[in-house]
């Protein structure tokens, strides 16, 4: 099966196809989802990185007449909002915020989740019981509510929002890693390490941890997507960082104008959708790649 040349994403199809033919990347060809996801993500990252160059200055400044629809004024390709701010500049600057929060929150959740999961799975018994009861405590609380409470207590900064989202998301990672660690713990190579006289720390770091991470790779990208959604929800509710712009706060701000100027909510909403979609596709693509139903011959 050959891949039809992708024409979007600013990358000439020929180069991409040649890239796909190199041995390490050949398996990528099997997963369109992964490819599309990566292209979406690359676009968002490129926009976020170049926001300062493309739209220098504060995106919160008034730049033109309020409520200009996209495609009317050449200066404002995506129009302006009700305060006359350039939608395109706001969108580009917000990309960075969303990605930062998403990735930072996911990183925290992964760190805590992997550590707790591996320890619970490897040691079992009392360690397992305690860690799993704590994770249940987190899971039984509605996570958005919990996040909101944390943000209210800690104050709405990018760091505290990332922390609040990350700290409510770790239990799912912990459970995933624990299940793997329990499986790996029973394998003979762990017993073999015991018979060599290896201590628990080395066994966990060298053998159990690396072999328990396969499902996490998939979960991590989905986690980023969830974190971006949570961040958008917080911003929409007006709990976002007041000093920064984000897609969520743009959706919230545009909400009163939904009937007359729907583009003000649709554009940032679409951006959230595409970014989340990108991470989800990467997650699913990695899943296909790492758990192939038919072995590659």
């Amino acid at each position: 099966m050959s891949l039809s040349a992708p024409t979007h994403g600013g990358m000439p199809g020929g180069i991409l196809q040649r890239l796909m033919r190199t041995p390490g990347l050949r398996r990528l060809r099997g997963s369109r989802a992964l490819l599309v996801g990566l292209l979406l993500l690359a676009t968002v990252v490129a926009v976020a990185l170049s926001a300062g160059l493309l739209y220098p200055g504060d995106p919160r400044d008034m730049a033109g007449p309020a409520g200009t629809w996209p495609g009317i004024d050449a200066r404002f390709s995506l129009g302006t909002d009700m305060l006359g701010r350039d939608m395109a500049a706001a969108m580009a600057h917000s990309a960075g915020t969303s990605l930062t929060v998403g990735i930072a929150a996911a990183a925290l959740a992964l760190l805590v989740g992997i550590a707790a999961g591996v320890l619970a799975g490897y040691f079992g018994g009392a360690v397992d019981d305690v860690l799993m009861r704590i994770s249940e405590l987190f899971q039984t609380m509605p996570s958005l509510l919990f996040t909101i409470i944390l943000v209210v207590i800690l104050g709405p900064t990018t760091a505290s929002i990332s922390f609040a989202i990350g700290i409510t998301a770790w239990p799912q990672i912990a459970r995933l890693v624990r299940a793997e660690a329990v499986r790996v713990r029973r394998l003979d190579y762990v017993d073999a390490a015991v018979t060599l006289g290896m201590g628990h720390g080395r066994i966990v770091l060298l053998h159990v941890l690396p072999n328990s991470l396969a499902p996490v790779v998939v979960a991590a990208s989905i986690l980023v997507a969830q974190a971006i959604l949570s961040d958008a929800s917080l911003s929409f509710l007006g709990l976002g960082d007041p000093n920064g712009m984000s897609w969520g706060s743009m959706v919230g701000a545009g909400r009163p104008m939904l009937r007359t100027a729907w583009y003000m909510t649709a554009l940032p909403g679409g951006a959230i959708f595409l970014t989340v979609m990108g991470f989800m596709l990467i997650g699913n693509g990695l899943n296909d790649l790492l758990n192939p139903r038919t072995p590659v011959r």
Binding site: L187, D188, A192, T195, L196, N211
Partner: peptide
């Protein structure tokens, strides 16, 4: 004392770390 007694397991596929 561990170095004096060692073990060979049944399933050679499971007794070696696949990443090592």
């Amino acid at each position: 004392h561990r170095r004096r007694f060692q073990m060979v397991f049944q399933d050679p596929a499971a007794s070696l770390d696949p990443r090592q």
